[in-house]
């Protein structure tokens, strides 16, 4: 056995080498990141959920008063903001479930040349639709 060979074998067997490698590398280089992407613009403003909320608020009946119309518009805005408030929580929920390190917008991922990153827009949208899609715009309606 050559000098140092026993030590090498011990380090390899005990996993110490990997641990040492981890220590010697700067943290950012130690492990590749699990990056996910979303289409933030879609989730924040253009997904069909918002259209269905708006449809609930749209009142075509001619007998509806201006005050009632304004109340419904307010309820629509409120629901939209509730979805926006829930959005970061839902993104975090999906990201945690996927064991992700980072979630960024698709445009940022493209800028970083991370085009192969898994996109979770659909999963986030499904959760939001399940949570808010069937909810009446006003309590008791």
């Amino acid at each position: 056995m050559r000098p140092g060979e026993g030590l090498t074998r011990f380090l390899l067997r005990s996993g110490m080498l990997a641990a040492l490698a981890g220590l010697w590398l700067p943290p950012a280089l130690a492990s590749p990141l699990t990056l996910l992407t979303i289409d933030a613009g879609y989730l924040e403003s253009t997904m069909p959920l918002y259209a269905s909320i708006a449809a609930q608020a749209a009142v075509s009946s001619p007998g509806v008063t201006a005050k009632r119309r304004s109340d419904l518009e307010l309820a629509r805005e409120l629901r939209h903001s509730e979805v926006l408030i829930a959005l970061p929580e839902v993104i975090a929920e999906v990201a945690r479930g996927a064991g992700a390190d980072l979630v960024v917008d698709r445009a940022v991922a493209r800028r970083l040349d991370q085009t192969a990153a898994r996109d979770i827009t659909g999963e986030v949208e499904r959760i939001l639709v399940a949570r808010f899609g069937q909810l009446p715009l006003e309590p008791g309606s």
């Binding site: 130690a30 970061p88 990201a95 980072l102 960024v104």
Partner: peptide
């Protein structure tokens, strides 16, 4: 939009 708390 999300960063794991202990992300390296």
């Amino acid at each position: 939009y999300y960063v794991r708390q202990d992300c390296p």
